[in-house]
């Protein structure tokens, strides 16, 4: 382990955010993810959880406060910096997350080509390995996203993220667009990543069942604020805040 275990891999301190000169949509969020940990972010549409995801992966910059990855703020990480790859994302819509004009093999191979300057042949070989890890082999590798099912696309999305050898994966509603029978495969895959490769997970979801399956701690957001946080089991079994209570009661 390169990093001291007590240093968070991903740390958001006192993060606030507003779009342009608009109203503040995130208020003083604090969050610390340690290596191999898993944090759930729970909330409904408009609670600011997807905005928070954008800040955590460094796609946008907080108006105040900071997000650091391995101790370095995103602001100091340039586009081509290797550190840039440390946090990857798995998106909600598996189809729009992939370039519609590339075969899935090329989509994953490109990551190796860019991040490790591998030759074309070597990248393809490694992409094949990576895709077989997520259960995709054979003729499907030369297909484009439109010819695949949502579950298959989502696995490509995970493989692409893994190809960058991240320390953290931020998954934004990774299974809400998928059917139940396919959802289980994806959830298991995300769970295995933690256990087998020590990759940290930030899971954004409105589905408490999914959050309880994948995370050990969670924060509950409402109107851009954290209303409750703690170990997932405790949050779900003995919610303290009325909003959390309301969410728990809504589970079918």
């Amino acid at each position: 382990m390169k990093h001291a275990t007590d240093e968070p891999v991903l740390l958001a301190s006192d993060v606030s955010f507003a779009y342009g000169s608009g109203p503040t949509v995130l208020h003083n969020i604090n969050l610390a993810l340690h290596a191999g940990g898993a944090i759930g972010i729970v909330g409904e549409s408009g609670s600011g959880k997807s905005t928070l995801a954008g800040l955590l992966v460094g796609m946008s910059t907080p108006t105040s406060g900071s997000v650091t990855v391995h101790g370095r703020p995103w602001k100091s990480v340039r586009r081509r910096d290797p550190q840039r790859l440390a946090v990857q994302m798995v998106f909600q819509n598996p189809y729009t997350a992939l370039n519609p004009r590339l075969t899935i093999l090329n989509t994953v191979a490109e990551v190796f080509q860019v991040s490790e300057k591998s030759s074309k042949a070597e990248s393809l070989e490694r992409a094949r390995d990576m895709l077989s890890q997520v259960g995709l082999t054979g003729s499907v590798l030369n297909k484009r996203p439109e010819d695949l099912s949502g579950g298959q696309c989502q696995r490509v999305g995970i493989a692409r993220a893994l190809a960058a050898k991240p320390s953290v994966i931020v998954a934004d509603e990774p299974t809400s667009a998928l059917d139940v029978s396919v959802q289980a495969q994806i959830l298991n895959q995300l769970r295995d990543l933690r256990e087998e490769q020590d990759i940290g997970l930030i899971l954004i979801s409105h589905d408490l069942n999914v959050v309880s399956y994948l995370t050990d701690s969670a924060i509950v957001m409402q109107h851009g604020k954290v209303v409750e946080q703690g170990p997932t089991a405790q949050l779900l079994n003995a919610p303290a805040h009325s909003y959390t209570q309301n969410l728990v009661d809504s589970v079918f």
């Binding site: 579950g151 396919v182 289980a184 069942n209 999914v210 309880s212 399956y213 589970v251």
Partner: peptide
């Protein structure tokens, strides 16, 4: 049966069994 086993729920935290294939 498989559909029910594939649903995560607050009560059961054991490993989910997905349905292979599509």
């Amino acid at each position: 049966k498989a559909l029910l086993a594939a649903r995560p729920s607050l009560e059961h935290t054991g490993r989910l069994i997905g349905i292979p294939g599509t």
